[in-house]
Each structure stands twice: as structure tokens, then as C-alpha cells.
């Protein structure tokens, strides 16, 4: 297993994904978001209220940060791709876990830091880097490894606006050889 441990530790520090918002921060998507969650904060949708607040103008909901760079789905073929909303080119970085039998995935933590709120017209891009891979742990689901990545979000000038640290457990389902 030394080879496997070496392979998974080699993931640490590796950039595993980038994202580019297909559209700038915009009022229609914010209005859609606010309606879906019935969030009545007027600084997201009410120009006058936002102008009178310390934000000075409409701002995007801070926890909407991740939404801006979500990949545009390709609906056709989703079932054939095993439910993946997007087409991928070849196996991803998690293949090393899958091949070793750690086929289960459980999301464990999401940690957002917000550096500043975004205004209409801003353009968000993201890059995701593996921060840590744990040694094998015994969990209630089975043996597994915790995998932590950090997605750094920047604005049109390349300045940081926030980041999300995300932790998952890749586990070997118990009772499966």
C-alpha cells in the first residue's frame, strides 16, 4: 500500500480544477436565488434600500459565491454519464481512491471565508487546490481517507474575494470486498 499512500500524498498542493463564471454577477441570478430561499434582505434586490445601506449599491448574497462559477450543465447524456451534470475529460483526481476501493464519498465540512461582498458586473473565477489528505482512518462507514481542498475565488483584477475549504471522506463501504 506504500505506493497508494505515496500517490495520495502527491495530491497535496495540486491544482485540481478551475472555474470561470459564465456571466458577471447579475441581478436576475441574484433575484432567482433570493426567491428560492425566500431571503428578504433588501440589499440583494432593492436598489434604493441597497443605496441607503452601507453597501452603497446592490450586493450579491455572500454565500452565493460558489454559484457564480458552477459549470453550465449539459442535460443531454446526463443519465449515460452516471448523473454527472457536465462532461469530463478522463478520470479525475479521485480515481486513485476509487481504484483502491474507496468508492464511497461523504461530504463532511464546508468552511467559507468572505473577504468582501460582490457588486453587479463583477467577474469571478476560481481555482481549487488539494490542501490535505489524511492517513487511513476507521469511520462508522468504513475505512477511509479525509480529503480537503480549498477553492480560492478572485475578482476581475485577480484580487481574492473569498474561499471555501471543503472536506470529504472517501471510504471503502463496509461489507464490500
Amino acid at each position: 500500500m506504500e505506493d497508494f499512500d505515496g500517490q495520495i500524498q502527491a495530491l497535496v498542493g495540486r491544482e485540481v480544477g478551475t472555474g470561470e463564471a459564465p456571466d458577471p454577477v447579475n441581478q436576475p441570478m441574484i433575484r432567482h436565488w433570493a426567491a428560492a430561499f425566500e431571503d428578504g434582505n433588501p440589499v440583494y434586490v432593492d436598489e434604493a434600500a441597497a443605496a441607503a445601506s452601507r453597501h452603497g449599491a446592490i450586493v450579491a448574497p455572500p454565500l452565493m459565491l460558489q454559484t457564480w462559477t458552477m459549470a453550465t450543465p449539459k442535460i443531454t447524456g446526463m443519465a449515460e454519464r452516471g448523473g454527472s451534470p457536465v462532461e469530463t475529460d478522463g478520470p479525475g483526481f479521485m480515481a486513485v481512491f476509487e481504484e483502491a476501493g474507496f468508492t464511497g464519498t461523504l461530504a463532511v465540512n464546508s468552511e467559507f471565508e468572505i473577504d468582501r461582498y460582490l457588486h453587479l458586473g463583477e467577474i469571478v473565477t476560481s481555482s481549487t487546490t488539494i490542501e490535505a489528505v489524511s492517513e487511513q482512518k476507521q469511520t462508522r462507514l468504513g475505512a477511509g481517507h479525509f480529503l480537503t481542498w480549498v477553492t480560492e475565488y478572485v475578482d476581475q483584477d485577480g484580487e481574492p474575494v473569498g474561499r471555501q475549504r471543503f472536506r470529504i471522506l472517501k471510504f471503502r463501504p463496509e461489507g464490500v470486498a
Binding site: N41, L63, I114
Partner: peptide
């Protein structure tokens, strides 16, 4: 994350600035 944000600002109001949200 969205509902947590709404839950916080429903109480804290429109001048609140959310700086971090860590959830398990």
C-alpha cells in the same frame, strides 16, 4: 449555505456583513 446566510441576516439585518461560515 444559503439558508444559513438567510437565517443570520433575518436576525442581523441589512447592515450585517457575513465574514465566515463553517458548517459540518
Amino acid at each position: 449555505n444559503a439558508y444559513c446566510s438567510r437565517f443570520l441576516t433575518d436576525w442581523a439585518g441589512k447592515e450585517a456583513i457575513i465574514r465566515s461560515l463553517a458548517i459540518r
